Lab assay of single mutants.
Amino acid sequence: DHDVVPEDKFQETLHLKEKEGCPQAFHALLSWLLTQDSTAILDFWRVLFKDYNLERYGRLQPILDSFPKDVDLSQPRKGRKPPAVPKALVPPPRLPTKRKASEEARAAAPAALTPRGTASPGSQLKAKPPKKPESSAEQQRLPLGNGIQTMSASVQRAVAMSSGDVPGARGAVEGILIQQVFESGGSKKCIQVGGEFYTPSKFEDSGSGKNKARSSSGPKPLVRAKGAQGAAPGGGEARLGQQGSVPAPLALPSDPQLHQKNEDECAVCRDGGELICCDGCPRAFHLACLSPPLREIPSGTWRCSSCLQATVQEVQPRAEEPRPQEPPVETPLPPGLRSAGEEVRGPPGEPLAGMDTTLVYKHLPAPPSAAPLPGLDSSALHPLLCVGPEGQQNLAPGARCGVCGDGTDVLRCTHCAAAFHWRCHFPAGTSRPGTGLRCRSCSGDVTPAPVEGVLAPSPARLAPGPAKDDTASHEPALHRDDLESLLSEHTFDGILQWAIQSMARPAAPFPS
């Protein structure tokens, strides 16, 4: 592969990997390779389809078979030569091979799209000592099968071997295949498990690692696999990028399955594409389908809103127990993405979901129960707010008499603000006073009005108090039968009158 990737590009890729991570280095090298001529790309395919690569990765054979028959990708048995050289000459001794072996032994695996480039050397060096003999053996194999790289107009793939297949390693990572398949204008990513390549439709969760975000852009890794992070704060999961590491605690105790298979379609829109997988259930989501939507993949363990709600429900009964003089119970939860139609709101002032922060849900004790107040519409209280300059209440639009249902020339009671006709409430011909108009209920007259088809109010509507207090003497005590009587009149003013009279009014101040 030294004929494909020059030394300066190799060093530039290593520097970019240390600065921005393996995914960015892979993407940059792939983009550079696509700008080369067809001879360089053909050399790339020839390096990929060597015999030892085909033996190690069985899924490469179907890719090789898909090439046109007129494309010669065979390799000479006596060494490598550029395709432009007409004579089959043995190339001179390859010093770059020693360079590659020494550099890969030092860096474990470079971040390139060629056999030198995919593992994360920093994480491997940190986690190597417990498994040094086995990992050293794996390093000797890295130059042979560490990076199976493929690129063409139909298929483009980048393979990364790992030393996680050490025997006896619980939940060992089998390997990473960062794979971009450009077929019919689409893009897919796969993962390699035990020599087999699994596409998103049959993606397997190998051991402790999972394909957290099938994305090839942005600074985030394709698999949430930063070796420096180790395990999740809650004892979460091992990262795919942690090559040759000792077994780590796999999943939280509440995880239903340690080796679950995540779905390959969004649980909201039932469509495929780039998904984020939940650590607590097999569901996966688009970032845009979450509520609120996320802009980037959160670091650490992530769970959907259903799993978060289940966790909150487990903690909430203990938080609601009476604990005198104790601060509110704080339950730190990872930043969760909410699927459509589901929402768990945190306290005000918290950062938005999706940031690399930890939301704190506070379970406050329930407030003391209070008697429910009568629910009145805002339009129902409008007549009470229509007060004239002299303190006389004006008529609201649409006000109707509670007896006849007519809204023409209605009066407004100064005591309960109900609309009424003087002739309907006082049919006996009582003279109307000039000021202080009161309806039949507030004036103490319980004589029913002779209106055909309208039920008369119940005599129990009024329960006047002592006459010594004029204001308190007109406080009506309405009961269920009074409400039914008012409802039978089918008037809004009657219902409003009952609601206003049912509310307690402050006692009249004593004259000074």
Score class of each variant (00 low, 15 high):
C307D: 15
C269E: 06
V387S: 11
V344E: 15
V268W: 15
L478T: 02
Q260S: 05
D482Y: 04
P351G: 15
Q242H: 10
A508Q: 11
V312T: 13
P511N: 00
S291C: 10
A353W: 15
L487E: 02
E265L: 08
V312N: 10
E265K: 11
G436M: 12
F492S: 00
A477E: 14
D377G: 09
H259S: 05
Q497C: 01
R400Q: 12
D356L: 03
S379F: 14
V268E: 11
D255I: 14
P506R: 02
M503P: 03
C442L: 02
C289M: 11
L385N: 10
G494M: 06
C404R: 02
E321G: 12
S485I: 08
D481Q: 01
A319I: 11
A319Y: 08
G341A: 14
E296C: 15
L250C: 07
L376R: 07
E296A: 11
G444I: 10
P464T: 11
G398Q: 08
Q313N: 06
R423Q: 12
I495Q: 03
S431P: 13
S339A: 12
F285Q: 14
R270I: 14
S369L: 10
D356S: 13
A319P: 09
G398D: 08
L486S: 03
C266S: 06
G272I: 00
S299V: 14
E274Y: 03
L376I: 12
C442K: 00
R412F: 02
P334Y: 14
G398V: 12
R438P: 08
C289P: 13
A449F: 01
A399D: 07
D470Y: 12
D482A: 01
L258S: 11
D406I: 03
G405N: 09
S443W: 11
Q257K: 09
R423C: 14
E296Q: 00
E350S: 10
V315W: 14
C278K: 12
M355Q: 03
V246L: 10
P365R: 09
G405D: 02
C269K: 03
D264K: 15
S485W: 08
H363S: 05
R438Q: 04
L384Y: 13
S299E: 04
E330Y: 13
L359K: 12
G436S: 12
F426C: 03
A251V: 11
P433V: 11
G465T: 11
E330R: 13
C424H: 07
Q242W: 15
A460W: 10
D377M: 04
R432I: 07
G346K: 12
D356K: 03
G402P: 12
S254R: 10
L437A: 10
E314G: 12
V403A: 02
C269L: 05
G244R: 13
P427L: 07
E484L: 02
V410C: 12
C289F: 06
I495G: 02
Q501D: 01
E265F: 06
T430N: 06
